[in-house]
């Protein structure tokens, strides 16, 4: 016998399934990552309507059966993110954030701070943004990804060389050492050079509350590389949404 439960959830991804169903990848407040099936949701007469669109935050009733997929039996919108979906740039930044959560928090383990961060990120996306030349270099998106890295245990060490401990000068970043590196350690550990001020910019993004922020091009490029290389080195993945189209 299965049982039903209520949870606050954000739809991270939605995949067409069978005739008229969708499989949803959800991030929930109470259980972390959950996969669920929404039956008949693709029919125009579905009672779910727009309540299960990606990036929507909803109060869900899920039925947990014997299988791995839970079944959505009720949904009420908390925040629709309609403005985000109507803006190509904001939507692209939102999808980067959603994919980062998908990859970094893949287990059904609750993490209320990650959930609150995701909700705050989506809330900010619906407001005025500091637009970068492309969504991959957006300051809010990069700040959110850095905070997710910190919450998942990959907080980059930025105060001193992560390899030898020297206070500076810091020349670049070493994914294998897990943080900033001096010139010698950067080369020895296969790291990469970063522009002046890029490490300080990343520190700022990690320390300040999540907010739309305009980054200098060098700082944005550095933060993006740090995020991508940390994903690849520690997580063994790259985000599809970060690949330039």
């Amino acid at each position: 016998m299965g049982r039903s439960y209520k949870t606050d959830a954000v739809v991270l991804r939605s995949i067409r399934f069978s005739e008229a169903d969708r499989v949803l990848h959800l991030y929930t407040l109470e259980r972390g990552r959950v996969n669920a099936i929404a039956k008949g949701v693709r029919k125009t007469g579905s009672r779910f309507g727009a309540r299960l669109e990606p990036l929507t935050r909803s109060a869900l009733i899920l039925h947990e059966g014997r299988g791995e997929l839970h079944t959505v039996s009720g949904a009420d919108i908390i925040s629709s993110q309609e403005q985000v979906r109507a803006d190509g740039y904001a939507l692209a930044v939102g999808q980067i954030g959603a994919e980062a959560v998908l990859k970094l928090f893949a287990e059904p383990e609750p993490n209320p701070r990650a959930y609150e961060g995701l909700c705050r990120f989506l809330e900010l996306l619906a407001g005025p943004l500091e637009r970068a030349p492309d969504p991959q270099h957006d300051g809010l998106g990069l700040a959110f990804q850095l905070k997710l890295l910190a919450l998942s245990g990959y907080l980059p060490h930025l105060d001193s060389c992560a390899s030898c401990g020297t206070a500076g000068p810091l020349a670049g970043f070493s994914p294998s050492a897990g943080g900033a590196a001096c010139a010698g350690c950067m080369v020895a550990s296969g790291g990469f050079r970063m522009a002046d001020g890029a490490i300080a910019a990343i520190e700022g993004l990690l320390e300040r509350p999540l907010a739309p922020v305009a980054l200098a091009p060098d700082a944005a490029a550095g933060a993006l590389r740090v995020v991508e290389e940390t994903y690849a080195h520690h997580g063994g993945f790259r985000l599809r949404t970060l690949q330039p189209s």
Binding site: R13, I15, A92, Q95, A98, E99, L102, R240, T241, Q243, S245
Partner: peptide
């Protein structure tokens, strides 16, 4: 983009 479907 999350499913790897880009304009091209």
């Amino acid at each position: 983009p999350i499913d790897g479907v880009d304009p091209e």
